[in-house]
């Protein structure tokens, strides 16, 4: 093993998948431009040629539909949307088409496509360059949605997604790109639908997604210094999500904080909270807390951004609240 950043781990997964499987190809806006992709796709076009690494026109709808059509007919496309906001122009092919086809045609047609969407926010970019709308897609039957928070998972989940055989939304966050850790050199899968316990504890369960899982690591350290013993679960997949692990953890701690850096109303945190309350209500010793973004679009001004985004401190405050 050697140390890779999150972005390098994504790149390596792409390179190995492209090398391993001739059905894999990459298409999307900016796949050969660091302004869009950071180092996460660096020089793949040079390594695999521009027939398999296709930097497309500004045509989200057509490229997504085309990736789906290619998937249906035997390819394993990875579609790249450099921002989740731009992907919304392709809502129809994703939500009406890719999600439905297996069911619609009684399993005779599969859509093995990976649709990668990058959350790229902050930096005073504002409402249309900051969205994290994973809940919208997790809502739809037929789609799987993964959100890696570590370099190891970034690689393993991409590989699992490409091999899954279903439409998988792979959502990565630019705020995680510099995180580093040991990453195995070969191909390996992180199973879709399995969460990871990042720290075992007795007092409170914190379930966090994506960027908030990284923030939760910091929060947990602060809380440990204050004598609070947190069990931290990095959800990794938000559809399907690891109910068993979450239920058994909350069964043990009796307290739950869910952290998802997206809007609160109708969000992933709401789904988890409702499921826990509905299934293991008796285990709860305190109301469930959610750490999410306020229900407002992202502002630009640094002062307002500061007030808008959530992080480790908010997790700490919520954990202390559910322990009162």
């Amino acid at each position: 093993m050697r140390i890779l950043t999150y972005a390098q781990a994504i790149r390596e997964a792409h390179a190995q998948l492209l090398a391993e499987d001739p059905r894999v190809f990459l298409i999307g806006q900016g796949v050969r431009n660091p302004w869009y992709a950071g180092t996460s796709l660096q020089d793949l076009d040079k390594e695999f040629g521009r027939d398999r690494v296709i930097d497309s026109p500004v045509s989200e709808n057509a490229t997504t539909g085309a990736a789906i059509g290619a998937a249906i007919t035997g390819m394993r496309p990875i579609l790249f949307h450099p921002r989740m906001d731009f992907m919304l122009l392709a809502a129809d092919p994703i939500m009406n088409q890719a999600a439905n086809w297996s069911y619609l045609f009684a399993g005779q047609v599969a859509v093995p496509v990976v649709i990668r969407a990058v959350i790229n926010r902050g930096g005073e970019q504002g409402a249309q360059h900051s969205q994290a709308v994973q809940a919208l897609f997790a809502h739809v039957p037929g789609l799987k949605v993964v959100m890696p928070a570590t370099a190891y998972d970034a690689k393993g989940l991409l590989i699992a997604a490409v091999r899954d055989g279903n439409p998988v939304l792979y959502i990565d966050d630019r705020w995680l790109y510099e995180l580093e850790e040991d990453v195995p050199e070969g191909l390996y899968e992180v199973p879709i639908g399995s969460a990871a316990i990042r720290r075992s504890g007795r007092d409170v369960t914190v379930v966090a997604t994506s960027y908030m899982a990284a923030e939760a690591v910091k929060a947990v350290a602060t809380l440990a210094q204050r004598g609070i013993d947190v069990e931290l679960i990095d959800l990794r997949s938000i559809k399907p999500w690891d109910r068993n692990l979450v239920y058994s953890s909350v069964g043990k701690t009796g307290r739950l904080v869910v952290a998802d850096a997206a809007w609160m109303s109708g969000g992933v945190a709401a789904e988890i909270a409702a499921s826990v309350a509905g299934e293991i209500f008796h285990a709860l010793k305190a109301p469930i807390a959610r750490v999410c973004l306020p229900d407002a679009p992202a502002p630009t001004s640094a002062v307002l951004e500061q007030a808008y985004y959530v992080g480790a401190e908010d997790i700490v405050a919520s954990v202390e609240k559910v322990l009162l």
């Binding site: 500004v58 906001d85 731009f86 122009l89 005073e124 970019q125 504002g126 409402a127 249309q128 360059h129 679009p297 502002p299 630009t300 001004s301 002062v303 307002l304």
Partner: peptide, 25 residues
């Protein structure tokens, strides 16, 4: 009021009801 920055300009009285950065929007 500082919600938009360079990419979101507005001046309704001058007939500018909004400029936004999603291409073609």
């Amino acid at each position: 009021r500082g919600r938009g920055g360079s990419m979101h300009l507005v001046a309704p009285a001058q007939g500018i009801f909004g400029t936004v950065p999603l291409v073609a929007a």
